[in-house]
Design a protein around this nucleic acid. Structure first.
Ligand code: MN
Ligand code: MN
Ligand code: ZN
Ligand code: ZN
Lengths: 157, 157
DNA sequence: TGTTCTTCAACAATCATTGTAGATACGGAG
DNA sequence: CTCCGTATCTACAATGATTGTTGAAGAACA
């Protein structure tokens, strides 16, 4: 993701208007490695701008995704996650307890579909999701994290 | 996934009761390679049992997943998909236009997290999702499939 | 057959996300 | 710097998938 200043320029040059709300979203995403959900971004932005609506956050995230500045991820935690790291060569570790997402920077060069196995499917991209337990959740005695964002966890019926 | 008869036995032996509704779900899932959503399963079962409720289908799918007889997948199509193929060594091709999911049976032996890259994360499993266009959707002139299930497609705002 | 516990169907509720409408404000033209 | 057209803002309603609830019906077992 480009810097907030560059994003400001990019938004203007693509016919989008730049507002304080949007710039605040730019700043919050800058350097964020937690793969926040829209609601998490909203919470972070709300600390600075009391009245910003969740809809505005969604809209800005969509614009950024459309411009290729962020990537939207669905890793099965119930909410779409947004990633300012658009590097194709990184994949994700997802905690199956708390839903936190961490980057795994590793190239898997052999990740091509074997000849003939596509059976007419035109493959464009590949994503790998590793599932397991994050450091915090490994100590099973820590069911609640005292700090850090809380993930909405899909509960059993 | 085991056969309907074996599943009947398994349900009884695990203290679950066997009903006509559940057996109908067993039968419908048997040999299904389309990775149906709960609603798709409901539609298929409804052909045989008019009055079965969607909740009952969800409940049965959850039971089957709990017993390890099916796997629930979240591949970003907006609905959880269910897979009677529980083979760990297969991955998925997802059509980004119609949302159809196809199996890709191929082992990726080098799919281990490089030493030290986990940084405290305890990795349990890895899934690969290949995205692209299915044969039907490749011919862009075929925006509507005349036969086959329709996927609820997430629309842009 | 009767008892007990599960499961059923119908219905309401939830959660993330999207749609709508009128008010607001960006930003290029003058 | 001001004005105007249009994109964006906020508040609110609506959607769609999934989950919770409840009284009635059904399965297992003695
Ligand atoms: Mn990432
Ligand atoms: Mn499969
Ligand atoms: Zn965790
Ligand atoms: Zn398709």
């Amino acid at each position: 993701m480009k810097s907030p200043e560059e994003l400001t320029e990019l938004f203007r040059s693509t016919g989008r208007k730049v507002t304080a709300q949007r710039q605040c979203v730019f700043r919050v995403l800058q350097g964020d490695v937690t793969h926040p959900s829209a609601e998490t971004v909203h919470a972070l932005v709300s600390a600075e701008m009391e009245t910003i609506s969740l809809k505005t956050v969604y809209q800005t995230l969509y614009d950024l995704a459309e411009l290729g500045e962020i990537v939207s991820l669905d890793v099965g935690t119930g909410m779409t996650r947004f990633d300012p790291n658009t590097d194709d060569l990184h994949h994700h570790l997802v905690c199956r307890r708390c839903g936190s997402v961490r980057d795994l920077v590793a190239d898997f060069p052999q990740l091509r579909v074997p000849e003939g196995a596509e059976l007419g499917f035109e493959v464009g991209s590949a994503e790998i999701v590793f599932r397991g337990l994050c450091p915090d959740c490994r100590s099973a005695a820590a069911p609640e994290q005292t700090s850090g964002r809380r993930q909405t966890q899909r509960s059993r019926p």
